[in-house]
Every structure is written in structure tokens, then in C-alpha cells.
Amino acid sequence: MNWLWNNLDEVGELTLVHLALSVPTIIMSFVISVPIGWAAWRFRWSRGVVLGLAGILYAIPSLPLFIALPGIIGTSLRAPINVVIVLTLYGIALMVRTAADGFGDVDPDVRLSATAVGYSGFRRFWSVELPLAGPTLLAGLRVVIVSTVSLVTVSAVLGIQSLGSLFTDGFQRNIPVEIATGIVVTVALALVLDLVAVLLGRLLMPWTEVDARSRRAARRQARDPEGAVA
């Protein structure tokens, strides 16, 4: 435990570095996949292409991609920007399917009504489709958050600083506490960012909380005496 007290500063610093790598990655993944997902839903022919590409991209292992990318775009092997680019690509691969599903689940009648009362395509997207797809998008974002925060650590074997550096350093110097600290802080960071996303979701989509409550009540009511409803 001594190690932890003596190195609190370093752990804090690495946590900040880790955040600086993960947060832009998560935001970029979200911002880029929403329009792609919308297009995959809107233009049927593009759905197979987009989802197929996303599947292949996600099948490519991250560490080899960390190494291959600098060879393609000409950055240095230890440049943190590689991590951001590669993990943004992964985030997109994870997220576009969810985004396409979210827009696909918007009730066509609601969409028609919006058009009928005079919404243009652009305004309909912002004030009808996006909010209704919101809960599904949030679910996708939460998967991206957990996966990104965890994958950033892998880049430490290349010498890129992050909480993963606690793993490589702890392994080389045989300090289990250092590794355990790294694991705990990484998981905690993922949980905190996840919580932030959930709270943001509640703030931006106050109706979901009401929805969930009424759905729970409806389920309780619908449950038959045996309590064995699927």
C-alpha cells in the first residue's frame, strides 16, 4: 500500500492523461456515428454497406491497428493522437449500428405527423427524430464509454502514457499494488464517465425517467397471478 501513498501524484496525473485521451475519443465517436447511423437508416441501400464496414472494422484488433495506423498516416509510433484516431474508429464501429436502430425505431406515424404539421426535414431531425432515438443512442454511447476507457490502456505497451502505464511499469518492476491500482482507477473512471452520460441523458431527455416508471408499473399490472410473464 505504501506504493500508492508515495505515488498518488503520478496516479492522478495519469488519470488526467487517460481522461484527455478517452473523452475526445468518446465525443468524436458519438458525433460522427449519429449522422452515419441516420444515413444508414434513411438510405436503405447504404445500410448493408455501412454496417458491414463497421463489422469488419470492429473485427480488427486494436493493438495491431495502433501500430499500422502510424505507417498509413505518417505519425510517430508513440504519438497519443494514434490512440484517439484508432479508438474513435472503434467507437464508430460500435455505435453506428445502435444509431441506425435508434432512428429505425422512431414510429413512422410520428414522423408523418411531424411532416403534416409542417416540419421541414432538417427541423424534424432535430426536434422529433433525434430526441426519440435519444435513449437508444445513450445506450450505445455507454457501451462506447466502457470500451474506450478500457482499450486506451492497451496503448501503454507501445509506451504511450495512460493509466495503462501503471500495468507495464508495475509488471516490469514487480509491484502488484501498482497494477491493482491501475485496474481499480480504470474501472472507476469508466463508471464515472458512464454515470455522467446517464445524468446528461436524464437532463436532456427528462421524459425517459417518466417512461421507465410507467412501463415498470404497467409490467407489474400485467403480471399474471403465477408471476411468470416473459
Binding site: S147, V154, V157, G164, F167, I183, V187
Partner: peptide
């Protein structure tokens, strides 16, 4: 899923 595999790997290896 949130567990970083690299951390787990080196911890078990130690």
C-alpha cells in the same frame, strides 16, 4: 467488460 485486460493479464502473470 470494463476490466482492462492488460491490467488483469500482468497481474495474473506476476
Amino acid at each position: 467488460r470494463a476490466l482492462p485486460t492488460l491490467g488483469l493479464l500482468v497481474l495474473v502473470a506476476l
